[in-house]
C-alpha cells in the first residue's frame, strides 16, 4: 500500500538573511491510510507549520509533499483549494465556526462548496451532528454552545464530507478533562469506524496515548517517531 502522505526533505523558511527562520528543516514522514498520528513537541518546534503544509494551506520552501501520489508543488492555488474541499478536513484549536450561524449551517458549509443540493446537505449535516452527539443543538448558534459542543460542531463540519484525512490542531486544547476524553474517543471512533486518517497536534501526553503513532518535533526536525503501524 502506498502512503497517503509522503514528505521528503520538506523545509519551510520564513524571512530572509539575518531574520531567516527555519520553521521546518528537512522533514521526512510517511502516513499510511487509516493511521491515527499524534504530533507532539514544544511550541516553535514546527508542528503547526507542518500541519499547515499537510493541509495545503501553506507550501514548503523546499522538498516534496505528495498527497495520494500527487506532488502538491505542481498544483495551482485553485487545485489546492479543491484538494482541501474533497480530501481534507480541518479541526482548529479555536473551533473557527462562523458566528451568528447555526450549528447545522456551519456543518453544511463544506457541502455548499461541493455543490451538494440543499436537501441532501441538510440531511448529511444532521447525520454528522448525530455522530458527534449534537443533533438536538443543530439550530443553536456557536455563542449558545459550550466549548466542547463547539469543538464537536467543528468536528462534524470536518467529517461531513467524508474526507480522506483529518487534520486536528490541538482539538482538546481549550477543554476540561472530561470533555477532552469525549473528543478523543470520538476521534478514535471515527478513525476506527470510518477509516479516516487522523493527524492530531497535541502537547498533552494523555491525549497522545490514544494514538498508536506519535511523532515528536524539535527545532523543525522529527526528533522521534514511534513508527507506523505499531
Amino acid at each position: 500500500m502506498s502512503p497517503l502522505v509522503s514528505l521528503r526533505g520538506v523545509e519551510r523558511v520564513y524571512g530572509e538573511g539575518e531574520a531567516e527562520v527555519r520553521a521546518l528543516d528537512g522533514i521526512d514522514l510517511d502516513f499510511m491510510p487509516g493511521e491515527l498520528v499524534a504530533v507532539m513537541g514544544p511550541s516553535g518546534s514546527g508542528k503547526s507549520t507542518c500541519m499547515n503544509i499537510l493541509g495545503c494551506l501553506d507550501q514548503p520552501t523546499a522538498g516534496s509533499y505528495k498527497f495520494a501520489d500527487n506532488e502538491t508543488r505542481e498544483l495551482t492555488q485553485d487545485q489546492l483549494a479543491l484538494l482541501r474541499r474533497y480530501y481534507l478536513g480541518f479541526i482548529f484549536q479555536g473551533y473557527n465556526l462562523l458566528a451568528r450561524t447555526s450549528a447545522v449551517d456551519n456543518v453544511e458549509l463544506p457541502l455548499v462548496y461541493r455543490g451538494v443540493a440543499a436537501r441532501e446537505r441538510r440531511e448529511r449535516a444532521l447525520e454528522a451532528l448525530r455522530l458527534v452527539g449534537l443533533e438536538n443543538r443543530a439550530h443553536h448558534a456557536p455563542s449558545e454552545l459550550s466549548g466542547g459542543q463547539q469543538q464537536r460542531v467543528a468536528i462534524a463540519r470536518a467529517i461531513v464530507t467524508g474526507p480522506s484525512m483529518l487534520l486536528a490542531d490541538e482539538p482538546t486544547g481549550n477543554l476540561d478533562t472530561a470533555r477532552k476524553d469525549d473528543i478523543m474517543r470520538l476521534l478514535v471512533n471515527l478513525n476506527e469506524r470510518l477509516g479516516i486518517t487522523i493527524v492530531m497536534v497535541t502537547h498533552e501526553p494523555e491525549m497522545a496515548e490514544y494514538c498508536r503513532r506519535q511523532v515528536h518535533f524539535r527545532d523543525g526536525k522529527v526528533a522521534e517517531d514511534t513508527g507506523a503501524r505499531c
Partner: peptide, 16 residues
Amino acid sequence: TREIGIRLSIGARGRE
C-alpha cells in the same frame, strides 16, 4: 477576514 479564512480552509476557491 476570519470567516474568509474559514471558507478558504474548507475548500472555497478564491473565485467563490
